[in-house]
Computed example of a mutant assay.
Amino acid sequence: MRITVLAGGVGGARFALGLREAAPDADIAIVANVGDDMWLAGVKVCPDLDSLMYALAGVGDTERGWGRAGESERVAAELTAYGVGWPWFTLGDLDLGTHLARTALLREGATLTEATARLSARWPLGATLLPVTDDEVPTHVVTDEGVIHFEEWWVRTRAKAPAHRFVQHGVERSRISEPARDAISRADVLLVAPSNPVVSIGTILGVPGVREALETAAAPVVGVSPIIGGQALRGMAATCLEVIGVEADAAAVAAHYGARSHGGILDAWLVAEEDAAGLGALRELGLRAEARPLLLTPGGPAAQVARDALALASP
Rank of each mutant, 00 (worst) to 15 (best):
residue 271 V to Q: 00
residue 217 A to P: 11
residue 204 I to C: 10
residue 200 S to M: 02
residue 259 A to F: 13
residue 243 V to G: 03
residue 183 A to R: 12
residue 221 V to K: 01
residue 226 P to K: 05
residue 193 A to C: 09
residue 197 P to S: 09
residue 188 D to C: 01
residue 177 S to G: 15
residue 193 A to E: 07
residue 234 R to F: 10
residue 173 R to V: 00
residue 261 S to A: 15
residue 271 V to A: 00
residue 269 W to P: 02
residue 275 D to A: 08
residue 186 R to T: 13
residue 194 P to R: 06
residue 228 I to W: 13
residue 232 A to K: 07
residue 215 E to A: 15
residue 218 A to E: 13
residue 241 L to Y: 14
residue 241 L to E: 09
residue 183 A to I: 14
residue 191 L to K: 02
residue 251 A to Q: 01
residue 181 R to N: 04
residue 181 R to S: 08
residue 199 V to M: 10
residue 203 T to V: 13
residue 186 R to L: 10
residue 204 I to K: 06
residue 272 A to S: 08
residue 247 E to A: 15
residue 219 A to R: 03
residue 242 E to W: 12
residue 265 I to W: 05
residue 203 T to R: 06
residue 236 M to W: 09
residue 196 N to Y: 12
residue 224 V to Q: 02
residue 248 A to D: 10
residue 221 V to M: 03
residue 275 D to Q: 08
residue 266 L to K: 11
residue 222 V to W: 01
residue 195 S to H: 10
residue 224 V to I: 15
residue 272 A to L: 00
residue 199 V to W: 14
residue 186 R to Q: 13
residue 272 A to V: 00
residue 234 R to D: 03
residue 232 A to E: 04
residue 233 L to S: 04
residue 211 R to G: 07
residue 279 L to N: 05
residue 191 L to C: 02
residue 184 I to E: 00
residue 180 A to N: 08
residue 218 A to R: 15
residue 204 I to A: 09
residue 251 A to N: 00
residue 249 D to C: 11
residue 218 A to V: 11
residue 219 A to Y: 05
residue 192 V to Q: 05
residue 174 S to V: 07
residue 177 S to H: 12
residue 181 R to A: 14
residue 213 A to N: 04
residue 203 T to I: 08
residue 262 H to M: 07
residue 213 A to I: 06
residue 271 V to P: 01
residue 219 A to D: 04
residue 257 Y to V: 08
residue 214 L to I: 10
residue 237 A to H: 10
residue 242 E to Q: 15
residue 194 P to A: 07
residue 197 P to F: 12
residue 209 G to Q: 01
residue 177 S to L: 13
residue 273 E to H: 01
residue 226 P to E: 03
residue 261 S to E: 12
